[in-house]
Design a protein around this nucleic acid. Structure first.
Lengths: 201, 201
DNA sequence: ACCTCTTTTGAATATTCATTCAATATTTTA
DNA sequence: TAAAATATTGAATGAATATTCAAAAGAGGT
Protein backbone atom coordinates (compact mmCIF):
# COMPACT_ATOMS: atom_id res chain seq x y z
CA UNK A 1 0.00 0.00 0.00
CA UNK A 2 1.34 3.41 -1.02
CA UNK A 3 2.25 6.07 1.49
CA UNK A 4 -0.54 8.33 0.38
CA UNK A 5 -3.06 5.57 0.83
CA UNK A 6 -1.89 4.88 4.36
CA UNK A 7 -2.11 8.54 5.12
CA UNK A 8 -5.57 8.99 3.64
CA UNK A 9 -6.91 5.95 5.41
CA UNK A 10 -5.64 7.18 8.72
CA UNK A 11 -7.05 10.61 8.01
CA UNK A 12 -10.43 9.05 7.27
CA UNK A 13 -10.31 6.87 10.35
CA UNK A 14 -9.51 9.84 12.55
CA UNK A 15 -12.38 11.74 11.03
CA UNK A 16 -14.64 8.79 11.81
CA UNK A 17 -13.55 8.70 15.42
CA UNK A 18 -14.29 12.37 15.84
CA UNK A 19 -17.62 12.13 14.11
CA UNK A 20 -18.64 9.13 16.20
CA UNK A 21 -17.56 10.68 19.47
CA UNK A 22 -19.21 13.96 18.72
CA UNK A 23 -22.31 13.09 16.74
CA UNK A 24 -22.80 9.35 17.03
CA UNK A 25 -23.18 6.44 14.71
CA UNK A 26 -26.11 7.62 12.63
CA UNK A 27 -24.21 10.76 11.71
CA UNK A 28 -21.18 8.81 10.64
CA UNK A 29 -22.11 9.17 6.98
CA UNK A 30 -19.68 9.36 4.11
CA UNK A 31 -20.67 12.95 3.65
CA UNK A 32 -19.91 13.95 7.24
CA UNK A 33 -16.71 11.97 7.37
CA UNK A 34 -15.56 13.64 4.17
CA UNK A 35 -16.45 17.07 5.44
CA UNK A 36 -14.44 16.50 8.59
CA UNK A 37 -11.45 15.19 6.62
CA UNK A 38 -11.88 17.95 4.05
CA UNK A 39 -12.09 15.56 1.14
CA UNK A 40 -14.71 14.40 -1.32
CA UNK A 41 -17.30 11.84 -0.15
CA UNK A 42 -16.51 9.60 -3.07
CA UNK A 43 -12.96 9.38 -1.86
CA UNK A 44 -14.08 7.60 1.26
CA UNK A 45 -15.78 5.04 -0.95
CA UNK A 46 -12.64 4.76 -2.98
CA UNK A 47 -10.41 3.91 -0.05
CA UNK A 48 -12.93 1.74 1.75
CA UNK A 49 -14.95 -0.31 -0.69
CA UNK A 50 -17.98 -0.42 1.59
CA UNK A 51 -19.17 1.03 4.83
CA UNK A 52 -18.79 -2.26 6.63
CA UNK A 53 -15.19 -2.55 5.54
CA UNK A 54 -14.61 0.89 6.97
CA UNK A 55 -16.29 -0.10 10.23
CA UNK A 56 -14.15 -3.18 10.63
CA UNK A 57 -10.97 -1.24 9.93
CA UNK A 58 -12.03 1.40 12.41
CA UNK A 59 -12.79 -1.13 15.09
CA UNK A 60 -9.50 -2.91 14.60
CA UNK A 61 -7.65 0.39 14.78
CA UNK A 62 -9.19 1.25 18.14
CA UNK A 63 -8.82 -2.25 19.54
CA UNK A 64 -5.12 -2.27 18.81
CA UNK A 65 -4.74 1.18 20.26
CA UNK A 66 -6.45 0.16 23.48
CA UNK A 67 -4.64 -3.13 23.85
CA UNK A 68 -1.30 -1.44 23.36
CA UNK A 69 -2.13 1.15 25.97
CA UNK A 70 -2.99 -1.49 28.54
CA UNK A 71 -0.09 -3.77 27.68
CA UNK A 72 2.33 -0.93 28.15
CA UNK A 73 0.98 -0.26 31.61
CA UNK A 74 1.63 -3.78 32.83
CA UNK A 75 4.93 -4.53 34.51
CA UNK A 76 6.73 -7.82 33.98
CA UNK A 77 8.29 -8.58 37.29
CA UNK A 78 5.82 -7.57 39.97
CA UNK A 79 3.51 -10.02 41.78
CA UNK A 80 0.49 -11.05 39.79
CA UNK A 81 -1.98 -9.28 42.05
CA UNK A 82 -0.28 -6.00 41.33
CA UNK A 83 -0.69 -6.59 37.66
CA UNK A 84 -4.42 -6.93 38.25
CA UNK A 85 -4.32 -3.53 39.87
CA UNK A 86 -2.38 -2.16 36.95
CA UNK A 87 -4.87 -3.65 34.53
CA UNK A 88 -7.80 -2.02 36.28
CA UNK A 89 -6.10 1.34 36.50
CA UNK A 90 -4.87 1.23 32.92
CA UNK A 91 -8.34 0.41 31.65
CA UNK A 92 -9.98 3.19 33.59
CA UNK A 93 -7.19 5.46 32.55
CA UNK A 94 -7.81 4.65 28.91
CA UNK A 95 -11.44 5.58 29.22
CA UNK A 96 -10.52 8.99 30.53
CA UNK A 97 -7.51 9.75 28.41
CA UNK A 98 -8.94 8.44 25.14
CA UNK A 99 -12.57 9.19 25.62
CA UNK A 100 -13.11 9.85 21.94
CA UNK A 101 -11.73 6.48 20.93
CA UNK A 102 -13.63 4.77 23.68
CA UNK A 103 -16.95 6.28 22.73
CA UNK A 104 -16.30 5.63 19.06
CA UNK A 105 -15.73 1.98 19.95
CA UNK A 106 -18.98 1.78 21.87
CA UNK A 107 -20.88 3.46 19.08
CA UNK A 108 -19.67 0.87 16.61
CA UNK A 109 -20.04 -2.17 18.81
CA UNK A 110 -23.60 -1.38 19.76
CA UNK A 111 -24.73 0.01 16.44
CA UNK A 112 -22.99 -1.81 13.66
CA UNK A 113 -24.16 -5.11 12.25
CA UNK A 114 -22.69 -7.69 9.96
CA UNK A 115 -24.11 -8.21 6.49
CA UNK A 116 -26.39 -10.92 7.81
CA UNK A 117 -27.63 -8.43 10.38
CA UNK A 118 -25.91 -9.75 13.48
CA UNK A 119 -25.09 -7.11 16.09
CA UNK A 120 -21.40 -6.77 16.83
CA UNK A 121 -22.01 -6.71 20.56
CA UNK A 122 -23.88 -9.99 20.44
CA UNK A 123 -21.33 -11.90 18.44
CA UNK A 124 -20.24 -14.87 20.44
CA UNK A 125 -16.66 -15.84 20.06
CA UNK A 126 -16.17 -18.83 22.34
CA UNK A 127 -12.59 -17.82 22.96
CA UNK A 128 -11.87 -14.57 24.78
CA UNK A 129 -10.17 -11.87 22.75
CA UNK A 130 -8.96 -8.30 23.07
CA UNK A 131 -8.62 -6.97 26.56
CA UNK A 132 -10.47 -10.00 27.90
CA UNK A 133 -7.56 -12.11 26.84
CA UNK A 134 -5.06 -10.00 28.75
CA UNK A 135 -6.93 -10.13 32.02
CA UNK A 136 -7.66 -13.81 31.52
CA UNK A 137 -4.02 -14.75 31.25
CA UNK A 138 -3.02 -12.67 34.26
CA UNK A 139 -5.55 -14.43 36.44
CA UNK A 140 -4.56 -17.82 35.07
CA UNK A 141 -0.94 -17.15 35.86
CA UNK A 142 -1.90 -16.24 39.41
CA UNK A 143 -3.73 -19.49 39.84
CA UNK A 144 -0.96 -21.60 38.35
CA UNK A 145 1.69 -20.02 40.55
CA UNK A 146 -0.61 -20.50 43.55
CA UNK A 147 -0.77 -16.83 44.33
CA UNK A 148 -4.54 -16.92 43.77
CA UNK A 149 -7.09 -19.34 45.07
CA UNK A 150 -7.36 -22.47 43.01
CA UNK A 151 -11.14 -22.52 42.82
CA UNK A 152 -11.51 -19.16 41.09
CA UNK A 153 -13.53 -19.22 37.88
CA UNK A 154 -11.43 -17.22 35.47
CA UNK A 155 -14.16 -16.49 32.94
CA UNK A 156 -16.53 -15.26 35.60
CA UNK A 157 -14.02 -13.04 37.34
CA UNK A 158 -12.83 -11.57 34.07
CA UNK A 159 -16.38 -10.71 33.20
CA UNK A 160 -17.09 -9.12 36.55
CA UNK A 161 -14.00 -6.95 36.44
CA UNK A 162 -14.44 -5.83 32.86
CA UNK A 163 -18.12 -5.21 33.43
CA UNK A 164 -17.38 -3.00 36.40
CA UNK A 165 -14.75 -1.13 34.40
CA UNK A 166 -17.01 -0.60 31.39
CA UNK A 167 -19.77 0.78 33.58
CA UNK A 168 -17.62 3.82 34.30
CA UNK A 169 -18.56 5.10 30.86
CA UNK A 170 -21.78 6.27 32.37
CA UNK A 171 -20.03 8.19 35.10
CA UNK A 172 -19.30 11.89 34.82
CA UNK A 173 -15.84 12.58 33.46
CA UNK A 174 -14.02 13.09 36.72
CA UNK A 175 -10.51 11.90 37.37
CA UNK A 176 -10.66 11.61 41.12
CA UNK A 177 -13.91 9.64 41.03
CA UNK A 178 -12.43 7.28 38.52
CA UNK A 179 -9.34 6.68 40.63
CA UNK A 180 -11.34 5.94 43.74
CA UNK A 181 -13.51 3.63 41.71
CA UNK A 182 -10.46 1.67 40.63
CA UNK A 183 -9.19 1.46 44.18
CA UNK A 184 -12.43 0.06 45.53
CA UNK A 185 -12.85 -2.38 42.69
CA UNK A 186 -9.33 -3.63 43.22
CA UNK A 187 -9.85 -4.00 46.96
CA UNK A 188 -12.87 -6.14 46.27
CA UNK A 189 -11.11 -8.29 43.70
CA UNK A 190 -8.02 -8.73 45.81
CA UNK A 191 -9.88 -10.13 48.79
CA UNK A 192 -11.83 -12.41 46.53
CA UNK A 193 -8.79 -13.61 44.72
CA UNK A 194 -5.97 -13.89 47.20
CA UNK A 195 -5.39 -16.70 49.62
CA UNK A 196 -6.24 -15.61 53.15
CA UNK A 197 -8.84 -13.15 51.92
CA UNK A 198 -11.65 -14.58 54.00
CA UNK A 199 -12.94 -17.24 51.63
CA UNK A 200 -13.07 -20.98 51.88
CA UNK A 201 -10.95 -22.63 49.29
CA UNK B 1 -57.45 7.63 26.16
CA UNK B 2 -59.87 5.22 24.52
CA UNK B 3 -59.61 1.48 24.88
CA UNK B 4 -58.75 0.95 21.25
CA UNK B 5 -55.95 3.47 21.52
CA UNK B 6 -54.47 1.74 24.53
CA UNK B 7 -54.66 -1.54 22.71
CA UNK B 8 -53.09 -0.23 19.52
CA UNK B 9 -50.27 1.48 21.36
CA UNK B 10 -49.44 -1.67 23.21
CA UNK B 11 -49.60 -3.64 19.99
CA UNK B 12 -47.19 -1.20 18.39
CA UNK B 13 -44.85 -1.28 21.36
CA UNK B 14 -44.77 -5.05 21.33
CA UNK B 15 -44.00 -5.02 17.63
CA UNK B 16 -41.15 -2.62 18.33
CA UNK B 17 -39.68 -4.86 20.99
CA UNK B 18 -39.73 -7.83 18.66
CA UNK B 19 -38.28 -5.87 15.79
CA UNK B 20 -35.50 -4.46 17.98
CA UNK B 21 -34.62 -7.81 19.51
CA UNK B 22 -34.62 -9.57 16.19
CA UNK B 23 -33.34 -7.04 13.71
CA UNK B 24 -31.94 -4.15 15.71
CA UNK B 25 -32.40 -0.44 15.90
CA UNK B 26 -31.81 0.51 12.30
CA UNK B 27 -34.52 -1.87 11.18
CA UNK B 28 -37.00 -0.43 13.62
CA UNK B 29 -38.67 1.60 10.88
CA UNK B 30 -42.32 2.52 10.77
CA UNK B 31 -42.70 0.20 7.84
CA UNK B 32 -41.27 -2.82 9.66
CA UNK B 33 -43.12 -2.08 12.85
CA UNK B 34 -46.35 -1.83 10.91
CA UNK B 35 -45.69 -5.05 9.06
CA UNK B 36 -45.11 -6.86 12.32
CA UNK B 37 -48.23 -5.41 13.88
CA UNK B 38 -50.17 -6.01 10.66
CA UNK B 39 -51.27 -2.41 10.36
CA UNK B 40 -50.56 0.53 8.08
CA UNK B 41 -47.31 2.47 8.57
CA UNK B 42 -49.22 5.73 8.81
CA UNK B 43 -51.08 4.35 11.75
CA UNK B 44 -47.90 4.23 13.75
CA UNK B 45 -47.39 7.89 13.00
CA UNK B 46 -50.95 8.54 14.02
CA UNK B 47 -50.56 7.01 17.46
CA UNK B 48 -47.05 8.27 18.10
CA UNK B 49 -46.58 11.74 16.71
CA UNK B 50 -42.87 11.22 16.09
CA UNK B 51 -40.30 8.50 16.23
CA UNK B 52 -38.69 9.97 19.32
CA UNK B 53 -41.99 10.00 21.15
CA UNK B 54 -42.33 6.34 20.31
CA UNK B 55 -38.82 5.65 21.55
CA UNK B 56 -39.43 7.35 24.87
CA UNK B 57 -42.71 5.49 25.36
CA UNK B 58 -40.98 2.24 24.51
CA UNK B 59 -38.14 2.87 26.91
CA UNK B 60 -40.48 3.80 29.72
CA UNK B 61 -42.52 0.68 29.09
CA UNK B 62 -39.49 -1.58 29.43
CA UNK B 63 -38.05 0.30 32.40
CA UNK B 64 -41.25 -0.11 34.34
CA UNK B 65 -41.44 -3.75 33.39
CA UNK B 66 -37.91 -4.39 34.61
CA UNK B 67 -38.25 -2.41 37.81
CA UNK B 68 -41.46 -4.23 38.68
CA UNK B 69 -39.81 -7.58 38.08
CA UNK B 70 -36.95 -6.76 40.40
CA UNK B 71 -39.12 -5.13 43.07
CA UNK B 72 -41.30 -8.20 43.21
CA UNK B 73 -38.27 -10.39 43.83
CA UNK B 74 -37.19 -8.46 46.90
CA UNK B 75 -38.41 -9.59 50.29
CA UNK B 76 -39.33 -7.11 52.98
CA UNK B 77 -38.27 -8.75 56.17
CA UNK B 78 -34.98 -10.51 55.48
CA UNK B 79 -31.55 -9.08 56.42
CA UNK B 80 -30.28 -6.44 54.04
CA UNK B 81 -27.45 -8.55 52.73
CA UNK B 82 -29.93 -11.13 51.52
CA UNK B 83 -31.79 -8.47 49.62
CA UNK B 84 -28.56 -7.67 47.82
CA UNK B 85 -28.42 -11.29 46.79
CA UNK B 86 -32.02 -11.16 45.66
CA UNK B 87 -31.32 -8.03 43.66
CA UNK B 88 -28.41 -9.63 41.84
CA UNK B 89 -30.32 -12.80 41.09
CA UNK B 90 -33.45 -10.98 40.02
CA UNK B 91 -31.46 -8.78 37.64
CA UNK B 92 -29.68 -11.70 36.06
CA UNK B 93 -32.93 -13.56 35.96
CA UNK B 94 -34.57 -10.72 34.08
CA UNK B 95 -31.88 -10.77 31.46
CA UNK B 96 -32.54 -14.42 30.77
CA UNK B 97 -36.29 -14.51 31.09
CA UNK B 98 -36.97 -11.28 29.21
CA UNK B 99 -34.13 -11.30 26.78
CA UNK B 100 -36.18 -9.59 24.08
CA UNK B 101 -37.08 -6.70 26.35
CA UNK B 102 -33.53 -6.48 27.60
CA UNK B 103 -32.00 -6.35 24.15
CA UNK B 104 -34.64 -3.89 22.99
CA UNK B 105 -33.65 -1.67 25.88
CA UNK B 106 -29.98 -1.84 25.00
CA UNK B 107 -30.70 -1.13 21.36
CA UNK B 108 -32.54 2.02 22.30
CA UNK B 109 -30.18 3.26 24.97
CA UNK B 110 -27.11 2.91 22.80
CA UNK B 111 -28.67 3.99 19.53
CA UNK B 112 -31.29 6.59 20.19
CA UNK B 113 -30.54 10.27 20.59
CA UNK B 114 -32.45 13.28 21.76
CA UNK B 115 -33.44 15.98 19.33
CA UNK B 116 -30.29 17.91 20.15
CA UNK B 117 -28.33 14.78 19.32
CA UNK B 118 -27.37 13.65 22.80
CA UNK B 119 -26.97 9.90 23.19
CA UNK B 120 -29.34 8.33 25.70
CA UNK B 121 -26.56 6.31 27.27
CA UNK B 122 -24.47 9.39 27.91
CA UNK B 123 -27.17 11.46 29.52
CA UNK B 124 -26.07 12.44 32.96
CA UNK B 125 -28.75 12.60 35.54
CA UNK B 126 -26.99 13.51 38.75
CA UNK B 127 -29.49 11.51 40.76
CA UNK B 128 -29.64 7.73 40.34
CA UNK B 129 -32.81 6.38 38.75
CA UNK B 130 -34.34 3.10 37.65
CA UNK B 131 -32.71 -0.02 38.98
CA UNK B 132 -29.78 2.04 40.24
CA UNK B 133 -32.13 3.64 42.71
CA UNK B 134 -33.31 0.31 44.07
CA UNK B 135 -29.82 -1.01 44.74
CA UNK B 136 -28.73 2.32 46.11
CA UNK B 137 -31.39 2.38 48.76
CA UNK B 138 -30.76 -1.20 49.83
CA UNK B 139 -27.09 -0.47 50.42
CA UNK B 140 -27.88 2.75 52.22
CA UNK B 141 -30.24 0.96 54.54
CA UNK B 142 -27.53 -1.59 55.31
CA UNK B 143 -25.13 1.16 56.26
CA UNK B 144 -27.65 3.03 58.39
CA UNK B 145 -28.60 -0.08 60.31
CA UNK B 146 -24.91 -0.88 60.76
CA UNK B 147 -25.15 -4.19 58.99
CA UNK B 148 -22.69 -2.92 56.40
CA UNK B 149 -19.41 -1.16 56.86
CA UNK B 150 -19.77 2.55 57.38
CA UNK B 151 -17.06 3.57 54.95
CA UNK B 152 -18.64 2.01 51.88
CA UNK B 153 -19.13 4.34 48.93
CA UNK B 154 -22.67 3.65 47.83
CA UNK B 155 -22.38 5.13 44.36
CA UNK B 156 -19.24 3.21 43.58
CA UNK B 157 -20.53 -0.11 44.80
CA UNK B 158 -23.81 0.31 42.97
CA UNK B 159 -21.92 0.96 39.80
CA UNK B 160 -19.67 -2.04 40.24
CA UNK B 161 -22.55 -4.40 40.86
CA UNK B 162 -24.71 -3.13 38.04
CA UNK B 163 -21.76 -3.10 35.69
CA UNK B 164 -20.97 -6.71 36.48
CA UNK B 165 -24.61 -7.66 35.98
CA UNK B 166 -24.93 -5.83 32.67
CA UNK B 167 -21.84 -7.52 31.31
CA UNK B 168 -23.67 -10.83 31.30
CA UNK B 169 -25.44 -9.67 28.17
CA UNK B 170 -22.36 -10.70 26.28
CA UNK B 171 -22.39 -14.18 27.74
CA UNK B 172 -23.97 -17.10 25.95
CA UNK B 173 -27.57 -17.66 27.00
CA UNK B 174 -27.01 -20.33 29.55
CA UNK B 175 -28.95 -20.58 32.77
CA UNK B 176 -26.42 -22.47 34.84
CA UNK B 177 -23.59 -20.11 33.88
CA UNK B 178 -25.71 -17.16 34.82
CA UNK B 179 -26.55 -18.61 38.22
CA UNK B 180 -22.95 -19.32 39.05
CA UNK B 181 -22.07 -15.85 37.94
CA UNK B 182 -24.58 -14.41 40.37
CA UNK B 183 -23.24 -16.55 43.19
CA UNK B 184 -19.66 -15.46 42.69
CA UNK B 185 -20.56 -11.83 42.30
CA UNK B 186 -22.56 -11.96 45.49
CA UNK B 187 -19.73 -13.68 47.39
CA UNK B 188 -17.44 -10.91 46.36
CA UNK B 189 -19.84 -8.15 47.30
CA UNK B 190 -20.74 -9.73 50.62
CA UNK B 191 -17.15 -9.90 51.82
CA UNK B 192 -16.59 -6.36 50.72
CA UNK B 193 -19.71 -5.07 52.34
CA UNK B 194 -20.19 -6.94 55.60
CA UNK B 195 -18.44 -6.25 58.85
CA UNK B 196 -15.86 -8.91 59.59
CA UNK B 197 -15.28 -9.55 55.92
CA UNK B 198 -11.55 -8.95 56.07
CA UNK B 199 -11.45 -5.19 55.50
CA UNK B 200 -10.32 -2.36 57.71
CA UNK B 201 -13.15 -0.07 58.53
C1' DA C 1 -81.20 6.85 9.75
C1' DC C 2 -78.07 10.93 10.67
C1' DC C 3 -74.37 13.27 12.57
C1' DT C 4 -69.82 13.57 14.90
C1' DC C 5 -65.67 11.94 16.36
C1' DT C 6 -62.08 8.57 15.98
C1' DT C 7 -59.48 5.36 13.40
C1' DT C 8 -57.30 3.66 9.20
C1' DT C 9 -55.63 3.74 4.60
C1' DG C 10 -52.85 4.71 0.32
C1' DA C 11 -50.54 7.93 -2.05
C1' DA C 12 -47.39 11.83 -2.17
C1' DT C 13 -43.36 14.60 -0.47
C1' DA C 14 -38.97 15.79 0.42
C1' DT C 15 -34.79 14.24 2.32
C1' DT C 16 -30.85 11.42 2.93
C1' DC C 17 -28.04 7.67 2.09
C1' DA C 18 -24.17 4.46 -0.03
C1' DT C 19 -22.44 3.48 -4.16
C1' DT C 20 -21.11 3.99 -9.22
C1' DC C 21 -18.93 6.17 -13.06
C1' DA C 22 -16.80 8.91 -16.36
C1' DA C 23 -13.83 12.66 -16.39
C1' DT C 24 -9.85 15.10 -14.43
C1' DA C 25 -5.77 15.71 -11.70
C1' DT C 26 -1.72 13.98 -9.53
C1' DT C 27 1.96 10.96 -8.67
C1' DT C 28 5.00 7.20 -9.93
C1' DT C 29 7.55 4.59 -13.20
C1' DA C 30 10.27 3.81 -17.13
C1' DT D 1 9.86 13.65 -20.45
C1' DA D 2 6.32 10.34 -21.79
C1' DA D 3 3.48 6.78 -20.33
C1' DA D 4 1.08 4.40 -16.90
C1' DA D 5 -0.87 3.87 -12.66
C1' DT D 6 -3.11 6.03 -8.88
C1' DA D 7 -5.88 9.48 -6.59
C1' DT D 8 -9.71 12.74 -6.64
C1' DT D 9 -13.79 15.04 -8.12
C1' DG D 10 -18.76 16.10 -9.19
C1' DA D 11 -22.75 14.43 -10.85
C1' DA D 12 -26.05 10.74 -11.12
C1' DT D 13 -28.57 6.58 -9.50
C1' DG D 14 -31.74 4.06 -6.94
C1' DA D 15 -33.38 2.76 -2.69
C1' DA D 16 -35.22 3.79 1.81
C1' DT D 17 -36.77 7.01 5.22
C1' DA D 18 -40.28 9.82 8.49
C1' DT D 19 -43.96 12.52 8.00
C1' DT D 20 -48.20 14.75 5.86
C1' DC D 21 -52.68 14.74 3.94
C1' DA D 22 -57.00 14.07 1.90
C1' DA D 23 -60.13 10.64 1.68
C1' DA D 24 -62.52 6.50 3.35
C1' DA D 25 -64.17 3.48 6.91
C1' DG D 26 -65.94 2.61 11.43
C1' DA D 27 -68.14 3.46 15.98
C1' DG D 28 -71.36 5.57 19.21
C1' DG D 29 -74.93 8.59 20.45
C1' DT D 30 -79.46 10.73 19.54
Amino acid sequence: MSFIQEQRKEQIINACIEELAESGYENMTFKNIAKRAEINPSLVSYHFKSKNILLFALLEHIFIHKIEHIQQSLSEDKPVIERIEEYINASLNYQRKFRKENIAMIEIIFNARTEDNKAFYLMDGDEPDGVYLILNSIIEEGIETQQFKSNVDVKILTRIINGAIDEMIFAPENDTESERYGEELFKMVKDYLCIGGGHNE
